[in-house]
Computed example of a mutant assay.
Amino acid sequence: MQNTQPHAQPYDDEIDLRQLVAVLWRQKVMITAIGILGAAIGVGASISSTKHVAEGLFITPGVSASNYKRYESVFSNGARLQQYLQSTNQATTHDGALLVKLADEPNGLTNALKPEFAFTDRDSKAFGVKVEDAAGAMIGVRIQVAHTAPTGGTPVTLLAEYVRDSIIRVDMESTMLSQCNSFRTREQELRNAQIQNDFAIRQEESRLANLRDIIARNPEASSIDNRQIVSVERGTERFLSPAAQLVASEIQIGELKLAEVLRERDRIASGLKRDYYCQAQQALQQPTTGRAFLDGTQNIQAAAFQGQDKSIDVVEQTWNELDVERANWTNTYLQSMRFVASPEGTELKQRKPGLALGIVLGGMLGGMLGIMIALIRAWWRSGFEAANANNTKA
């Protein structure tokens, strides 16, 4: 018996490119139309993604890369921004509403406020900021606001005022609380030192009376040769002559009384500063802006010095020290904090993707979709025609 095997049927897996090109050529109108439609969709997507972006570099002296995190947690607080806008009566304005919407977005404020670091000495000179260590030094905050409609850059200015206010409040809350507690403790320390000083004076006065009594009872004690050599260490003063000990005791009492005068001056100054800083710390607990607080420190100072005689030198000196401190705050927070260049009028249009890229991508995707549709239509039509032919033969 012979095993007969059927002959393998040849399978044609080749693609006829001429036939494929012919199919595409017949459907060229549809492919072109879909490609144009895709390009139009790309243009629409590009136009709809248009953002009007305004930005500016806000210089913040005193804020370094090491302590920026302390301020960043306040910057990125959306509730804090809304509270600031309400306290300044700007929550209902166009710019205020835009910033409220920005605060409601996830990471909206974090993306709008970015630290800027100095990279060259030339940049530091251009920005007008002196930094000792230029490598990694922070020069300010890059503020950027994007919106679908033109804003003129004014929201950036308003956001910069919020940054200024946040820095002032963070610094002042820390400073006022620390100084209030410090001068409260200082007052108690001075009182304890004064008690100790009074006790030392009484001791020296008692010792002085004893020495005078010894000299009165022993007149020859004052005639002892004062040129004797005695090692004056702690506890050996008694080996000096009574007259020498009497003079030393009088000098000691004089020094103690002089220290008492200096301590009293320190007590008066500490009491005035304690009242000033503690009242300022209480004022910060009220809903107010940083700029308003700085303006109000002069009234707080006047209240703390009420009833004090400014003709007394220590009172005048303390007043002047607080005046100088306030002037430094004004220079740091209200004058040195500024934009390198005003953000108003610098708004730019940004599209993602760009108009040209949107046309190219849309046209390519539309063309590819058109080719696929044309091939599917040709395959479906050929299958339909083959089925009709078989039915006719049957």
Score class of each variant (00 low, 15 high):
residue 155 P to K: 00
residue 156 V to A: 05
residue 156 V to E: 05
residue 156 V to K: 01
residue 157 T to Y: 01
residue 157 T to H: 07
residue 157 T to K: 06
residue 157 T to D: 11
residue 158 L to Y: 12
residue 158 L to D: 09
residue 159 L to R: 03
residue 159 L to H: 10
residue 159 L to P: 09
residue 160 A to I: 03
residue 161 E to A: 11
residue 162 Y to E: 03
residue 162 Y to G: 03
residue 163 V to W: 06
residue 163 V to H: 02
residue 164 R to V: 04
residue 164 R to E: 12
residue 164 R to W: 10
residue 164 R to Y: 08
residue 165 D to W: 03
residue 165 D to H: 10
residue 167 I to G: 10
residue 167 I to R: 07
residue 167 I to D: 08
residue 167 I to W: 10
residue 168 I to W: 03
residue 169 R to V: 12
residue 169 R to S: 08
residue 169 R to C: 00
residue 169 R to M: 15
residue 170 V to T: 07
residue 170 V to M: 05
residue 171 D to W: 06
residue 171 D to A: 08
residue 171 D to C: 04
residue 171 D to V: 05
residue 171 D to Y: 08
residue 172 M to V: 02
residue 172 M to Q: 14
residue 172 M to S: 13
residue 173 E to P: 02
residue 173 E to I: 05
residue 173 E to A: 13
residue 174 S to C: 00
residue 174 S to R: 13
residue 174 S to G: 14
residue 175 T to A: 15
residue 176 M to Y: 15
residue 177 L to W: 02
residue 177 L to T: 15
residue 178 S to H: 10
residue 179 Q to Y: 10
residue 179 Q to L: 13
residue 179 Q to D: 05
residue 180 C to Q: 03
residue 180 C to L: 00
residue 180 C to N: 08
residue 181 N to F: 03
residue 181 N to R: 09
residue 181 N to Q: 15
residue 182 S to F: 13
residue 182 S to L: 07
residue 182 S to I: 00
residue 183 F to S: 03
residue 183 F to T: 01
residue 183 F to P: 04
residue 183 F to K: 00
residue 184 R to E: 14
residue 184 R to F: 14
residue 185 T to N: 13
residue 186 R to T: 04
residue 186 R to Y: 06
residue 186 R to H: 01
residue 186 R to C: 01
residue 187 E to D: 13
residue 187 E to R: 11
residue 188 Q to G: 07
residue 188 Q to H: 02
residue 188 Q to S: 13
residue 189 E to P: 02
residue 189 E to L: 06
residue 190 L to M: 11
residue 190 L to W: 08
residue 190 L to P: 07
residue 190 L to G: 07
residue 191 R to I: 10
residue 191 R to C: 00
residue 192 N to K: 14
residue 192 N to T: 14
residue 193 A to I: 08
residue 195 I to M: 12
residue 195 I to K: 09
residue 196 Q to G: 04
residue 196 Q to E: 13
residue 197 N to K: 06
